[in-house]
Design a protein around this nucleic acid. Structure first.
Lengths: 199, 199, 199, 199
DNA sequence: GATGAATGAGTGTTCATTCAT
DNA sequence: CATGAATGAACACTCATTCAT
């Protein structure tokens, strides 16, 4: 008797997750090129071929890893954007939430921080698409705030500088091996915003 | 008739520079793994074997590239450290000078920014040594300032946060394709320091 | 309640035919190595494993395809051989009938024409057996005619040349994409039997 | 001291020839997919990677093999076309010369006969280009003759049928393992041109 | 100093086949 | 009878490195 559709769906979901988690682990240790598909399979305790059963190729594994987490982040950002707060508070909340997320998921954060720099080299055909995901999830909403804050006078810097600055702070929250600990997040964000926000 | 010692020295120097510049160019376009030794040779307009005559291996090419520029930066930093300024002014000057350097040499800056995150993956045997160069040239002197500034009350943040913050700002000065333009450096540094420095 | 023997037989037959037809289709488009077992299953709208339930392996699918049609052709040939005609007329009739069959079933004809050249490469263990089927169905009866025709003077060529020639004409009836149309078969056979050049 | 340009050129030429000959040999025994690049290298007594130094990929090896011999054949055909003969004599001469060539180079002939059927499957991107080479070298000149012969009454068949027929005869000259021997070529061509059946 | 031909270990990927359900 | 998840052997191709000249 064949498995039911539902059983298969569950198996697939579980397997894809195993593979993605294994890929993330290996990536952390060895980087993109050091990550062999065989090693991913081994860590996931699956056969070599199964990785290709679920993902088209190595690129697909990593691009999926990117998009999947971006979806989660997008939800967080959207929630904040729709809340009733001043621009400054939204920026602060967003920064705190993102730093918290980064702190809670250092592996995935490190993954994004490093892979984002290399998308155009690693995935020359898809890097525009991928950059688009980052834009949608994170930068478009923030950019809107920067503009609004600048014109209302809440922010003391021009939107482009604000954007660059915000990104720097975000990326700075996890550097190499050292993620920022929960207790320091508030201090970290304060430093950032004090320079940024009009008194 | 054979070449003189001096002639040979000059040739050596020129060749090594050709190779290093070629490596830097290709790295920008293709990343470390995308940079083939053959491509380096081709861009340098030299025979493939000659690269191995001047450098032990691929690792050696890139590590040399790292150390060579770090030496230049170290001199700049040392100059600032030995000057007669307040901690805040030294920090400001250093930040400005480093941002200027980054703005003037976007290629080499991008190279450092990206390679620094991967040293432990790319050069597992030498990454401690390499990190040491960065420490010596940049972080040791700065760390000294952070400590001094914290104890004197000039800085409103703890030294570890200060260090992380400073690094973030430095890295933020050149992001991907967009380097900061000279005119904006002052604004950039202001934003950073305004949050950082006790009023 | 379980199926009856007869129901099962019918299902079996239908399934095997689905698979064989699917295999033929894919073969036409992609050739032997381009034909994946999964693709066969997909085209037949069956589960992947079922193909292996009905056929031992890929080889078995294709060898079955060969033998099945050869059986049909053998009957045609046998009918002609047992008729009351001169050697020349039998040769002519056979050529016409075979060309008609080829014209009516271009897919299967193309399949035979191409696979026949590769049997020793594709099925090294069974190629003698397979060649035997071709011999039995087609060449043994024809060879008998060539010999008879040569000794009676009806044919102006030696049996080996006649055989080679006959084969060439048969193969020529379907070339690549262009099968011969029904209306041209007579002309085609005429040329073969009476030559290309007007006397 | 580096090798001179001329030395290198000679080495390259020799190597490419070694590889092409090895590929031809293996192809004969194993067919396209059975021909592993490693086996080609082994037969040519060269390192695995050198094959890729001289040829872009497996496809390139075999396409080069096709075009190289087609160039030779084209010259032969052109010579005949430019001669002073009747259409029938040109057709006869061409057929004889091509059959002789086929008989002298059974390996390469078998290669062409089999690969030509599979170009669209093996080289989906280049098969039009490849077919074009065949057209230029062989079929365009012949087609011209068929037309001329048909309108002058020298040929008793329509040009399309003549073309199909001629191709069949040409292909028939080498069938599987059995190439036609020199002595039989004349008989073979006679049958083709004057028919199988004695009048 | 200089060249580029030569090598082969290493890796991504495919696909026939098996098997738990 | 039926399904599709799972496996792994096999193979094309890349590229750092060596070496004869």
């Amino acid at each position: 008797m064949p498995r039911t559709r539902e059983q298969n769906r569950r198996i697939r979901e579980k397997r894809m997750d195993q593979i993605l988690q294994a890929a993330l682990q290996v990536y952390r240790e060895k980087g993109y090129h050091g990550t062999e598909m065989g090693e991913i399979a081994r860590r996931a305790e699956l056969g070599r071929g199964l990785v290709y059963y679920y993902f088209k190729d190595k690129e697909d594994v990593f691009v999926t890893l990117i998009t999947q987490t971006l979806n989660g982040w997008k939800e967080v950002m959207d929630g904040i954007m729709q809340s009733e707060q001043t621009v400054a508070d939204k920026l602060s909340t967003a920064l705190i939430r993102m730093c918290e997320l980064a702190s809670e998921n250092p592996e995935i954060t490190h993954f994004h921080q490093t892979i984002i720099r290399d998308t155009h080299v690693l995935f020359p055909d898809r890097y525009k698409e991928i950059d688009g995901y980052y834009e949608d999830a994170i930068w478009l909403p923030l950019r809107h705030l920067f503009k609004k804050g600048a014109s209302s006078g809440e922010l003391r810097v021009s939107p482009p500088v604000a954007e660059r600055f915000y990104a720097s702070i975000l990326f700075g929250a996890v550097q190499g091996e050292k993620k920022i600990d929960r207790a320091s997040i508030q201090e970290w964000v304060d430093v950032a915003l004090y320079g940024m926000i009009q008194k």
